[in-house]
Design a protein around this nucleic acid. Sequence first.
RNA 1: GGGGUCGUAGUUCAGUUGGUUAGAAUGCCGGCCUGUCACGCCGGAGGUCGCGAGUUCGAGUCUCGUCGGCCCCGCCA
Length: 606
Amino acid sequence: MCGDLRAADIGQSVVVMGWVQTYRDLGGAVFIDLRDRTGLVQVVFDESSTKEAHGIADRVRGEWVIGVAGKVRSRGSNVNPKLPTGEIEIEADYIEVFNRAETPPFEISDDVDTSEDKRLAYRYLDLRRPSIQRTLLMRSRLNQVARRSLVEQGFTELETPFMVKYTPGGARNFVVPSRLNPGSFYALAESPQIYKQLFMIAGFDRYFQITKCFRDEDLRQDRQPEFTQIDLELSFVDMRDIHQVVERMVRSLFKETIDVTLPDPFPVMTYDEAMRRYGSDKPDLRFGLEHVVLTDLVKQHDGGGVPLFKQALAQGGIIKAMVVPGEQPLSRTEVDKLEVEAKGVGAAGLGRAKIAEDGTWTQSPFSKVIEDGLRVAINEATGARPQDTILFQFGPPKLVHTVMSHLRLHLGRKLGLIPEGAWKVLWVTDFPLFEYDEKSRTYVAAHHPFTSPRHEDVDRLTSDPGACRALAYDLVLNGNEIAGGSIRIHDPDVQAKVFDALSISAEEQQAKFGFLLEALSFGAPPHGGIAAGMDRLAMLIAGGQSLRDVIPFPKTQKGADPMSGAPTPIQEQQLADLFIRSIAPPSKESKDGTKEATKEATKEAT
RNA sequence: GGGGUCGUAGUUCAGUUGGUUAGAAUGCCGGCCUGUCACGCCGGAGGUCGCGAGUUCGAGUCUCGUCGGCCCCGCCA
């Protein structure tokens, strides 16, 4: 194929087919760079030797699909060092035009710099770009390596349904109407969770599947409504066994795609430590800027003369600080910009203090009121030195963590603290089993209601649910959650206590999970599992910025496909066939953007 | 649900305190050219300034609304 030809092929008669990348018509000679999946090769049509072929070639345009027959020959002194095929060219004596092409809306090249919605509207053209082709070929290899690793480790690949019973709670489901059962609906599976547990009960003690999952939640750079998981479940194992299986697979993935050696074993950190030091349950360990919790220290100083500190503590808040080193001192303006950034994620403001040579604080709202004792203590606790800037955040724990972890990532990027080519992998363990929901004033499952508490916390299920830790774990890579799982409950007594803590009544249990509970009563082995995000893994390994870079046909942030126009309204009759009536307000005419492809097509057809 | 940011030839962008016929590069079309590879040279076409109101003698520019893209918070058991 085009990109495979080398000097060793000189003299060979070849036939190549592909797309015209560029043409250079010099009059008596036409040069065409022909592209296929493997790369580019230069084809020459010489008027003096092939009058007929030359006559066709000089009318060829970009992205036309052609086939060429000719001889590989040396370029002599005209080598193009930029191309792998640059030492040779094809001296063509025959050309066939398979298809002409409209002028594409953007250039098919890795250098393209066009808007993402245009790329998605013409995704089939975007996918012609070599870099995306490389990414998808790499992703194909990831699938092979994952499968091989798991099969070698004794796993069986089994399928589970996409169309499943709707269960409330957790991620919102996409819903599928049942024509055969008027008024009833399936849900698209948000994960194979329950079914893989049923495989364990059935005795398939090591299951895996590379499968799509569907969640009707708001999109992000790293979240698509349909995405691919490598899903695992194992019987007769503990947490460490599961970690080892995953580590083996992930190490293979990195080794065999980008030749990166990940540590053995992966480091582990508890959820509490991650929140304390980084304000996040998926900390990016490639750089410092760790947080320091000052809550107790400030308590000891009874607020240290700072009214805002005292107020935050009185309301049950926490106080956190982060030191920005003086090697790259922050100007007043830069800190003001950081405050805007902080307010953007919900902060009321951003406390700051610049450390003077004598350790006093300048450029700080606290400098006039703070007592020397607390100031010295904070300098010491944070390790702040002259020229450094301390940033403060205080208030409700969740907000403080969100703001501070956002600032940490923002500064890490802005100050260039994130080393290129670094890979920092981490297990985060001991997540809380429950979270308290202020609205319903109940505990809700932090992971899912079948997650086992740590064995030593079982006694606290009734006495102090909020303090229970789960046998749940996430795998974090460079600040991205790439896998998450847990040991499941297989003891009916423990399961009952968990449902009690969640205030889920017996009737509710039956209605929501009856079939799983019944299955668990027929002899369930101890089991647990994990699911890895294939798209995120592929994104990280490919060095992409967005999940859209590694998914052939992704959705926009509003869940739309600019190419097909999906989602669209459907006919009244179709709704009627499904026993559904829409209460949506009438759709606005000619929405812009999504219909662009259609409009273009109409224009060109007329 | 909320915050930020962007929207001008096919594409990437410029467009002054609101002021003549909205520019550049590239791409596209036509012509010339036998060693180009960002080919070159000559000529040409190409615009609902996202959409809709408003202010104004006059709006790409100001105001309000709306649609869409992207990033984030909430949400994602």
